[in-house]
Write a protein that binds this DNA or RNA. Structure first.
Lengths: 195, 195
DNA sequence: ATAGAATCGGAGAGTTCTCTCCGCTTGGCG
DNA sequence: CGCCAAGCGGAGAGAACTCTCCGATTCTAT
């Protein structure tokens, strides 16, 4: 607890350089190899001792969060921007597809969103809640205009998002042509005509 | 190498009993805890030494395969049975939903189908190929009558199946009401009317 | 019942990973 | 320039696994 003291005390110059470097390397390593990347590996690639990595990021979750929090924040911001769009259906589906598209190219982000295996954003974080709230708002608006099946909950969509991500990533890994996100989006539309 | 000699020599009575018991326990443990269940844990639960488990199932993959191969075989058999059904679309969607439904209640089966993380059926096995072939046949027939989008490949559907499984399992874990498989199935239908 | 082969059990080797500790190094201030 | 706290590096503790080995045990054929 309490490691990120942005204002508590200005880090020594070399420490700050190391921190930046570790963050940068971790970013790349996590994006390409996913959450299973070890601290040893990150330290090795960054050319620092493993102790240095742990000093800056006391647990694996702290590092992952430092790396991925920005990405998720962008999703939330994007959702907020779309929340007032005229075409609520378009806003919802566009956001959904955008998240899948962005996340599919980041292994760690996928791992985090896909698996429920503990390595999610820490419960205390407001970020997970923000993400859920942003999604819920877009969904609700889209449902109100009949663009999305009324029987889907935000949780359902969240689950579909994760599943879609898994599918999309695999499809992409073999150069898949069809946007699987599109298929899932089609599925979320109401079965019959709805006014 | 060469441990499963079903006919080579009849196992001693106690050995056969142990084998059965381990298989049974492994079945349960894998279904509830997934592929990460350790051999130590299985041995402990089965009340045998870990050496005994390894004697009967020389590697983790061997055990997983012994446990799950039957399930997958049933899927393949089901697909074959449906392959001559009159309504090709119904056959395809029914099978898809059935697989999702069955597999969603078995953690290890999900893990195996979901993740591409090495722990799939071993490449040499014809089972994976059979599964793929059975799916491809149902898909192809359904596409021929216009029940499924023509631009989906068997691989795409396979990916969607896995993704759907992931979503369904999570939804189920919280008592989700909507069948997410249904949503994905809707998405696989052609966008507009097709003769 | 008994020899001897098949099987068992679980200690432990070897790995991989997370995280800690502490002696050495280095930046920054007076 | 020189002090000394902040920071560094990496050995190593400890946990969790997979898989092996071999003395002890148990089955089975005679």
């Amino acid at each position: 607890m309490g490691d990120d003291h942005s204002a508590a005390r200005p880090l020594r110059a070399d420490a700050r350089r190391n921190r930046e470097r570790v963050l940068q390397i971790a970013q790349e390593a996590l994006a390409s190899d996913g959450l299973t990347t070890s601290f040893d590996e990150i330290a090795r690639r960054a050319g620092v001792g493993v102790g240095t990595v742990y000093r800056h990021f006391p647990t694996k979750e702290a590092l992952v969060e430092a790396v991925l929090v920005g990405r998720v924040e962008r999703f939330v911001a994007d959702a907020r921007a779309r929340a007032t769009a005229e075409d609520a259906g378009r806003a919802f589906f566009g956001w959904f597809a955008e998240v899948v598209d962005q996340a599919a190219s980041n292994q760690a982000l996928c791992d985090m969103l896909e698996s429920g295996s503990g390595m999610t954003l820490r419960p205390g974080s407001t970020l997970a809640a923000d993400f859920g709230a942003a999604l819920a708002r877009l969904l609700s608006r889209a449902q109100r205009v009949g663009a999305v099946r009324a029987d889907l909950t935000a949780q359902d969509v969240h689950d579909l998002l994760r599943g879609c991500l898994a599918a999309e990533r695999r499809a992409r890994a073999r150069g898949g042509a069809v946007r699987l996100a599109e298929v899932v989006c089609e599925g979320m539309r109401p079965p019959a005509g709805t006014g």
